[in-house]
Design a protein around this nucleic acid. Structure first.
Length: 568
RNA sequence: CGGGGUGUGGCGCAGUUGGUAGCGCGCGUGGUUUGGGACCACGAGGCCGGAGGUUCGAGCCCUCUCACCCCGACCA
């Protein structure tokens, strides 16, 4: 490729509002351009990278026996109604209508479509298992797009769906996909940590996010130091230590309490006791308007995901408003742990770790004292509903550390969730009976992965692409105005192309600084400079983007050096 | 969807108490340069996000809208 003819130039001034380094660099180096919020053009350079990411994924998926296909982007809305997902998906579903009034969803994920195509065939146990996948644009009407390619409203996703006769068979595929994902990200220069995560509406034991460690990531997770356990904060299980096991339970009483005592800090100050000795309530509302009071030990934070699971709230929870609190005759700061009608109460396991709690029945000038769970009050449900605090331990006493990362992919069990909801989503088993198939699903965000690679691989001058996803293999340029060197550059370009190396040749009549800075910014692994100076030194200047020093490579050794570099 | 902010040539920005729009980058032409984003000269390019209002007069004041960015709540 001749740089002079490449569409999409590097730019000098990037919007000050663009904060994320990957966003900035991709814009500045001419890989992407924003259309409207969360929707991006992939310029020729960016497209090259995207294709390479796709290639790596495709190669590894195929190697694992998965088969590529594609579904229409417009999904008949009836399919989404069949699984009752028109309202329950975590993202805003976009819909569209054709001239005849037929309604479609713009696909944000494709379980229904894949099940639909499979059920069009009369499959039997002999056809199972199989794994079909696609690369297709996904539409998610995110409330807030951000971070360049990391969170957008329209993106290319690899989504795979596997079909099995039973859970045992599915588990094998799950293992295989786990391995495949590690290999995929590894090849693209990303070190991933698989962490247990929430799969929302389904529950179940198998669901992992592949996370790349990063400060700017949106996923917070907990991991043991030996790596034997890693889980998203939404699902991480941790040990609740006994706070005051020596204390004897005392009779509950109502005591006077100054009016200024409102917050947890006020409590600690007034009673000179740690927050773990107090009771704390958080109120949520389900989609169907039911109020949930979650009660925790004062030092812990409620985890809405766990709370939702504990009360089987379909579609998640939202915080209750003052208006909601008024319907049960209370207000913020004065919610009791007990005594309401038509409200579901959920207690955290930590309620059993404290003898003689303070709080639970706060009024303007009084509060309850020496409250003991099981004796003075009981919740409708007692479950794990807390966010893991910093420095917590696993149940078997291993210390966990916090991590933060970008989720680049996930694998999860669907079970028979879709096959039981959708009509005729069955296979004929060996006993002649129709059974719903057992499913798994496997996603990778292509653009997000690309953004993450830049987030991880860059320096103060620009991007440093890993070999397998670089837009070109060689960035070649000629410096100085010597006609001999220019001639040599043109010949070398032809030679590189003939040898099969993807080459970007900066043939502009531009100053050295501009060309070299551009090369650094674009980040192609090998930079080749041809100039009077290099020729006098015996060849071409060879520099690896990730290294500091350059060296001279003789013209005759160029192809073998490149071959060696790219085979390594 | 809550809170905060910004909309002015392609991009980044300035624009005072209201008086009819400027700077840098980029772009075009000519010239001088040529190993780390050069310099000179000339030039093209603007319904000041949109609508309505106040005023003799609005980029600036008021109202309403739209878009985008940041912080939260939700997700590859």
């Amino acid at each position: 490729m001749l740089y002079s003819t490449l569409f999409g130039k590097t730019i000098k001034n990037v919007d000050q509002n663009v904060k994320l380094i990957s966003h900035r660099l991709l814009l500045q180096a001419g890989f992407i351009r924003e259309s409207v919020a969360g929707r991006y053009y992939f310029l020729p350079l960016g497209m090259k990278v995207r294709d390479k990411v796709v290639d790596v994924i495709e190669e590894e998926m195929d190697k694992a026996g998965a088969q590529k296909m594609i579904t229409p982007v417009l999904h008949p809305l009836e399919l989404w109604e069949e699984t009752n997902r028109t309202s329950s998906v975590g993202f805003e579903l976009m819909t569209i209508e054709d001239q005849r009034g037929a309604k479609f969803a713009l696909g944000g994920t494709a379980e229904e479509m894949m099940v639909d195509v499979v059920r069009k065939f009369n499959i039997s146990y002999k056809d199972l298992p199989f794994n079909i996948y696609q690369f297709s644009p996904k539409f998610r009407d995110e409330k807030r797009a951000r971070g360049g390619l990391l969170r957008v409203r329209e993106f290319l996703m690899k989504d795979g769906y596997s079909f099995h006769a039973d859970e045992k068979d599915f588990k094998q595929e799950y293992e295989k996909m786990w391995q495949t994902y590690s290999t995929i990200f590894d090849r693209m220069g990303l070190k991933t940590v698989p962490i247990e995560s929430d799969n929302g509406y389904i529950g179940g034991d198998y669901c992992h996010e592949f996370v790349v460690n990063s400060e700017i990531g949106e996923s917070r997770f907990l991991m043991t130091e030996d790596g034997s356990y890693a889980a998203h904060e939404e699902v991480a299980v941790f040990k609740r230590e006994m706070i005051n096991p020596e204390d004897e339970p005392k009779p509950m009483e109502i005591i006077e309490q100054p009016e200024w005592v409102q917050t947890m800090e006020d409590n600690e100050k007034h009673y000179k006791l740690p927050s773990s000795r107090f009771l704390k309530n958080v109120v949520y509302k389900t989609k169907d308007g039911r109020l949930i009071i979650a009660t925790l030990r004062g030092d812990l934070q409620a985890n809405p995901i766990k709370v939702a699971h504990a009360v089987k709230a379909v579609g998640g929870l939202e915080p209750a408003t003052d208006k909601d609190l008024a319907t049960i005759g209370t207000k913020t700061g004065y919610v009791h742990c007990w005594g309401y009608k038509g409200v579901t109460t959920v207690g955290d396991l930590s309620l059993k770790t404290v003898v003689n709690f303070i709080g639970g029945q706060k009024e303007e000038k009084t509060d309850s004292f020496n409250v003991n769970y099981g004796r003075d009050f009981e919740c409708d449900v007692l479950a794990d509903i807390a966010l893991p605090p910093e420095g917590c331990m696993t149940e078997d006493g291993k210390k966990m550390v916090e991590g933060r990362g970008i989720e680049v992919g996930n694998i999860f069990q669907l079970g028979t969730h879709y096959s039981t909801k959708m009509d005729k989503a069955v296979f004929t088993d060996s006993d002649g009976k129709a059974k719903p198939y057992y499913m798994g699903c496997y996603g990778i965000g292509v653009g997000r992965t690309m953004g993450t690679i830049v987030e991880v691989h860059h320096d103060d001058k620009g991007i440093v692409w890993p070999k397998n996803v670089a837009p070109y293999q060689v960035h070649m340029t000629q410096l100085g105005n010597d006609e001999g060197a220019a001639q040599k550059a043109r010949e070398t370009y032809e030679k590189l192309l003939a040898a099969g190396f993807e080459t970007l040749y900066d043939d502009r009549d531009a100053r050295a600084g501009e060309k070299l800075n551009n090369a650094d910014l674009i980040g192609i692994p090998v930079r080749l400079v041809i100039s009077n100076r290099s020729l006098e030194n015996g060849g071409f200047e060879w520099k690896i983007r990730s290294e500091e020093e350059s060296r001279i490579v003789a013209e005759d050794d160029l192809i073998s050096e490149l071959t060696k570099f790219y085979e390594a």
